[in-house]
Design a protein around this nucleic acid. Structure first.
Lengths: 200, 200
DNA sequence: CCATTTATGTACCGATTGGTACGTAATTCC
DNA sequence: GGAATTACGTACCAATCGGTACATAAATGG
């Protein structure tokens, strides 16, 4: 079962973590392959052998991000006993992630490739897909709330989801602009204070 | 009063408009000087002679953006008879700008350099300053509303501003992700429905 | 021990990056 | 009609971009 050739001399997962942070900090285009390799502690040929190309490395980094930072949000969304509580927790988890002093600021899916040169368009739309999927998961949670009776039947799940997704995305910009956790928490307070006016 | 040497053969303002659109579409790093020059209909030496360097051109482009797309928002903010109405109009003007089919999507100040390579950090923080200034103008408008009596004295102007700035920034992401004008308008509806719960 | 397989570091690839040197064309001042 | 001044297009710069050829090292299978 053991691998055949010479064993890899670096920890691929650890290297991917390093790459994730570089992309998260500098963005897809702002992170050069040389810079990435250096941060990962390997040479470029090792990077290419292990990950294929810059874009593939980025996609793996985003997958890792979604597993480590996104999954807890998804879990909170499922675990919440009401749609309102679930979405509130999701926002608060994100607010803390976006301002965690151990992390680059903001959501990696938002900050790392909002715009880019035409040839990198696939990267931008890949991230856009991911963001739309987040909004869709909000919508599903609200719809479930309607089905379970904790959200009025008359509520428009798509509209509620679009509003909270907008706030969530906005939190990334605020975080990049230096907003503190407390400031983001207050924004979440405000957003949640609107619930009854929106989900009715 | 006439100029001394050979007259410039191109319309500097028209060229700047073209550059603005390229930066708005592709971002600061995603727009190459060659691409910019081509879109502007001039050669690179003319670009450098007229604008100095890439970063200076970008700053002029942002100034132009703020004059043409930002100023109407500022005007709406001043003109509104109440803080609530003023902020609502500001958001709606932005929602239309961000989804205008004649424009690239989203706010240029948000989308064109959220992250970037370390050496372009000045560009990112220049834009962050601009965004913070927008939030500050929201805050001043709410404070004026308190002074004029259309907002309760107990309201926290900074908190109200932070919330609506977050929504406004979030609108840019939604627009980039393909949201329609109507969708953004509904988000603004939701945000404004929260007013009484927030500014109290 | 030897063939096979995979990873490693060095040294390189063509293309593109932001930016310029330079000779020439077009204008104003005197 | 010069001299001075400014803009023009061509052709170029070093540096970096994403990516790779290649010789060598380290492992497994027989």
């Amino acid at each position: 079962m053991a691998e055949r050739g010479r064993p890899r001399a670096f920890d691929k997962d650890a290297a991917l973590h390093k790459a994730m942070r570089v992309f998260w900090t500098s963005g897809y285009e702002g992170a050069s392959v040389s810079e990435l390799a250096q941060a990962m502690g390997i040479n470029k040929p090792s990077l290419y052998a292990a990950f294929g190309c810059k874009e593939a490395l980025f996609r793996e980094a985003i997958e890792l991000y979604e597993k480590e930072e996104g999954a807890p949000v998804g879990a909170a969304l499922e675990a919440g006993r009401t749609a309102r509580g679930a979405i509130e927790t999701a926002l608060r988890v994100n607010a803390r992630c976006y301002t965690n002093p151990d992390n680059p600021r903001g959501c990696m899916v938002v900050v790392s490739a909002l715009a880019g040169s035409p040839e990198n368009n696939p990267v931008c739309s890949f991230l856009a897909d991911s963001r739309r999927e987040s909004e869709e998961s909000f919508r599903r949670r609200v719809a479930r709330g309607i089905a379970e009776g904790d959200v009025p039947e008359s509520a428009d799940a798509g509209r509620v989801a679009a509003f909270y997704a907008t706030v969530m995305n906005g939190l990334s910009i605020q975080a990049r602009d230096g907003a503190t956790v407390d400031a983001l928490e207050r924004v979440v307070d405000s957003a949640m204070a609107a619930w009854d006016a929106i989900a009715r």
